[in-house]
Each structure stands twice: as structure tokens, then as C-alpha cells.
Simulated assay, not measured.
Amino acid sequence: MSGGKKKLIRTRLGVRLERIEEAVSRRGRKVLFRLTSRRAAATRLILDEAEAQRAFAREVAACLVDPDISALARRGSYVTDDGSAAATGGYRLGLA
């Protein structure tokens, strides 16, 4: 899965939902949704957008009750791409 168009749909508490569109033939395109999280070890690829939105909501809810993730969010900490907490860099874990 490389070379496709990627668009960030939603992000919250370190959970990211991206839309990935790839060409499968001259006329056709395949659309996938990639769900990643600081909490979950594996990336999920989902074919259905509605299911991807539901999976995003479930993962955000799980992050809210995860003591490590919610503590970072309450402190307003940042998380870098390697998963470490830092005062600068990365993206902010927002509750909104």
C-alpha cells in the first residue's frame, strides 16, 4: 500500500483516521481507511467509511479510560511520532 493519496479525516487523543485512495486500474480506485492509535499496537485497515468512523469513536473512548493516555491529555502533553512524551514537537492530544 504505497503511492496512494492520503487525507487525514479525524484525530483526537492520539487516534488518527486517514482516508487512503489508490489506483487499482486505469478506471478504478480503491478506498481504505487507516486507523492508528498510541494505545493500540496494530494499525487497522477498514473498507467501510461508516465502520471506520465507529471504530475511531470506540478507540477514542478507550483512550479516555486508559490511565496513561488520559493523564497525558490532562497535562496537555505532546506525543512525538516515536510515542515519547515531550514539551515540544509531535501533535497535541486534545480533548475537544
Rank of each mutant, 00 (worst) to 15 (best):
L8D: 11
I9N: 10
R10G: 01
R10Y: 06
L13M: 12
V15S: 01
V15E: 00
R16H: 10
E18R: 06
R19Y: 01
I20Q: 03
I20R: 00
S25T: 09
R26Q: 05
R27V: 08
G28E: 15
G28T: 03
V31F: 03
V31N: 03
T36N: 08
T36K: 10
S37Y: 13
S37A: 07
S37T: 09
A41C: 07
R44A: 15
R44H: 13
L45T: 12
L45V: 03
L45N: 10
I46Q: 02
L47R: 15
L47G: 12
D48H: 14
D48N: 11
A50K: 14
E51P: 06
R54G: 11
R54Q: 12
A55K: 09
A57V: 09
E59V: 05
V60P: 14
C63T: 04
L64E: 12
D66G: 05
D66C: 07
P67A: 00
D68C: 05
D68T: 04
A73V: 04
A73P: 02
R74G: 01
R74K: 08
R75K: 14
R75N: 07
G76A: 07
D82M: 06
D82F: 11
S84R: 13
A85I: 02
A86S: 10
A87E: 09
T88C: 05
T88S: 13
T88R: 12
T88W: 04
G89D: 15
G89R: 15
Y91C: 08
L93M: 11
G94M: 11
A96H: 10
